[in-house]
Amino acid sequence: MVKIDNDRINNLLAQARQGDRQAFSEIVRIMMNPVVALTYKMTQEKDSALDLAQDTFISAWENLDSFKGESRFYSWIYRIAANKSLNYLKREGRKVGDRSLTEQVASENPARELEQKELKGRILSFMSQLPPQQRLVFELRFYKQLSFEEVAGHTDKALGTVKTLYREAVKKLREVALAEGWAQ
């Protein structure tokens, strides 16, 4: 579950809109992890995930004027990242890439690191069961905690469609979890 200080983001955003690149860099620092989490779970490729995250922020910088504040800023960033990820999947075809991003996780505790790697592997395994659109809806709702209305807005889908996609995703994940013995 992502926790982002919206007030801090808004302050930095106001400065970035004035052309303050350092303020924008600070936004990147704050949001890089959740954005990479999204692009990585969508693509399951380390390099592509980092590239897409960077592309996301560059697009955000270039289109700051078009952000009208109708949604939360971080939610707007997720939308850009989601579109870039979907376009990437469309372009490259669905494939599960390397999962070596887990190796970059900072941890001074090897046991904890191993546990994290295991959990990440499991998450990616779960996510790879879902078609891109379901994956995206699940990512935005479950991990990013956006409301269904926001997810619908970001994916240009009807609210009912988004709920159906989420329900289908959960149903599929539950079946996999039960089969794998992860959810008792």
């Binding site: 579950m1 990479v36 900072a106 990440k120 991990y143 994940l173």
Partner: peptide, 12 residues
């Protein structure tokens, strides 16, 4: 089992 985004933390 799905964890959180915190599991996807990049190093500084």
């Amino acid at each position: 089992s799905m964890g959180t985004d915190d599991e996807f933390r990049l190093d500084r």
